[in-house]
Design a protein around this nucleic acid. Structure first.
Length: 260
DNA sequence: CACACTGTTCGCTC
DNA sequence: CGAGCGAACAGTGT
């Protein structure tokens, strides 16, 4: 669920709610969501303020007035929720920060694949975890360099966070639909034009999704998201949408529209 | 009820 | 060392 456009929305949401207010409490119901001992988070956050957010792909870094930078990953089912009264704590709000204005920030995470970490440097973290530049800012040169050494299906490569950080399963399908390219196209078989087409489609999908605040219903009519389901009708060909497994993930595409 | 679903990480092979 | 692959992870929804 939360891919680049959603996490972008979460960043905007957090920027407009949680910054520049002192943190007075932190509560975590399940320490497995913490990549470090809970005491580290208390030490790094209590009495501090969140000051600035930086998003790279699906990772959200939150700088603080303390020494540490908070890293949030929403996993597959995460979202932020800023609320006023204690009884409004959302059901899956497993981690909650309380601010000295009385409001609370819940890190909702239904399936607990999300997590928090603490780091000293965003740049170091990006290097250690092999994250590319955010797909929204990625240059065509870097994209081409990444693809040059790859020998597998284009869809799998699009999902690689060291190639275009932020692209997830639905975006990869949408990018390839917009690019009229079969998801199993081998990267090594793609020529320069093919790569440019996929790159441009990626940029288009990102911007359209962000403009529409990742609200799929508002996407243009020719976007796969409206019929991304087995047996549905392709907007262009009226052919049926097919479902296959690629890299262990459900992949939807229109065989008549997307050629190898 | 068994399984699908989602993204990252780990362990393994080459 | 780096690419590629598949399993593991959690737990709700179907």
């Amino acid at each position: 669920m939360p891919e680049l456009p959603e996490v972008h929305g979460y960043k905007v949401y957090i920027d407009s709610t949680c910054l520049h207010t002192k943190i007075t409490a932190i509560d975590c119901r399940d320490n497995r969501l913490f990549k470090q001992p809970a005491a580290n988070f208390e030490k790094a956050l209590l009495g501090k303020e969140l000051s600035k957010t930086v998003r790279i792909g699906k990772y959200l870094f939150i700088e603080t007035t303390g020494d540490k930078i908070l890293v949030l990953h929403f996993g597959m089912t995460g979202r932020p929720n800023y609320y006023k009264s204690v009884e409004d704590r959302p059901k899956f709000g497993h981690i909650v920060l309380t601010f000295d204005n009385g409001f609370h920030f819940a890190f909702e995470n239904k399936r607990k694949f999300g997590w928090w970490d603490l780091v000293d440097s965003i740049e170091d973290y990006k290097k250690e975890h092999n994250l590319s530049d955010d797909a929204r800012d990625l240059s065509i040169e870097d994209f081409k360099t990444s693809l040059a050494t790859r020998k597998t299906d284009i869809k799998k490569v699009l999902l690689d966070q060291s190639v275009c950080a932020g692209v997830g399963n639905w975006m990869a399908d949408e990018i390839l639909y917009q690019a009229k390219m079969h998801p199993k196209t081998k990267v090594e078989s793609m020529d320069n034009d093919d790569i440019n087409i996929v790159f441009d489609a990626m940029k288009k999908v990102i911007e359209v999704a962000i403009e529409n605040e990742a609200h799929y219903d508002d996407f243009p009519k020719d976007f796969l998201m409206h019929f991304r389901k087995e047996g549905e009708k392709c907007f262009h060909t009226d052919g049926k949408i097919e479902k296959i497994k690629l890299g262990g993930r459900a992949t939807y595409f229109s065989p008549e529209w997307q050629k190898m």
